[in-house]
Simulated assay, not measured.
Amino acid sequence: MTTVIENNNQKSGRLEVGTPLLEVKDLHVEFHTRDGVAKAVNGVNYSVAAGETLAVLGESGSGKSVTAQTIMGILDMPPGKVTQGEILYRGQDMLKMSNEERRKIRGRKIAMIFQDALSALN
Rank of each mutant, 00 (worst) to 15 (best):
M1Q: 10
M1Y: 11
T2D: 12
T2R: 12
T2G: 09
T2W: 10
T2L: 10
T3W: 01
T3Y: 02
V4R: 01
V4W: 07
V4E: 14
I5T: 08
E6F: 00
N8P: 07
N9V: 03
N9K: 06
Q10T: 11
K11V: 02
K11P: 15
S12H: 07
S12Q: 05
E16Q: 03
E16D: 11
V17M: 13
G18H: 13
T19F: 14
T19M: 14
T19D: 14
P20H: 13
P20M: 05
E23A: 00
D26A: 02
D26V: 00
H28V: 02
H28M: 05
H28S: 05
H28E: 05
E30P: 03
F31R: 00
F31N: 08
F31G: 08
T33L: 14
T33G: 14
T33Q: 13
R34V: 01
D35V: 02
G36R: 01
V37P: 15
V37M: 10
A40D: 14
A40R: 06
N42D: 15
G43N: 00
V44Y: 00
V44M: 03
N45E: 11
N45F: 06
Y46S: 05
V48A: 04
V48T: 07
A49T: 06
A50E: 11
A50T: 15
G51C: 04
E52M: 04
T53E: 12
L54Y: 03
A55H: 06
A55Y: 07
L57C: 09
L57Y: 00
G58L: 06
G58F: 12
G58P: 02
E59T: 05
S60V: 07
G61Y: 13
G61V: 08
G61P: 09
S62M: 05
G63E: 14
K64G: 08
S65G: 08
S65Y: 07
V66H: 01
T67L: 00
T67C: 04
T67M: 00
A68E: 03
Q69G: 10
Q69C: 06
Q69T: 08
I71Y: 15
I71E: 11
M72N: 04
I74D: 05
I74Y: 10
L75E: 15
D76E: 15
P78F: 15
G80P: 12
Q84S: 12
E86Y: 00
E86G: 03
I87N: 05
L88S: 13
L88D: 15
Y89W: 14
Y89L: 01
R90H: 08
D93H: 07
M94E: 02
L95C: 04
L95Y: 04
M97T: 00
S98P: 05
S98E: 07
N99M: 07
E100Y: 05
E101A: 13
E101L: 08
R103F: 08
R103P: 03
K104C: 01
K104N: 09
I105G: 01
R106E: 10
R106V: 03
G107Q: 10
R108G: 03
R108K: 11
K109W: 09
I110M: 13
A111K: 01
F114Y: 15
Q115F: 10
A117D: 14
L118E: 14
A120K: 00
A120D: 06
A120M: 06
A120F: 05
L121G: 03
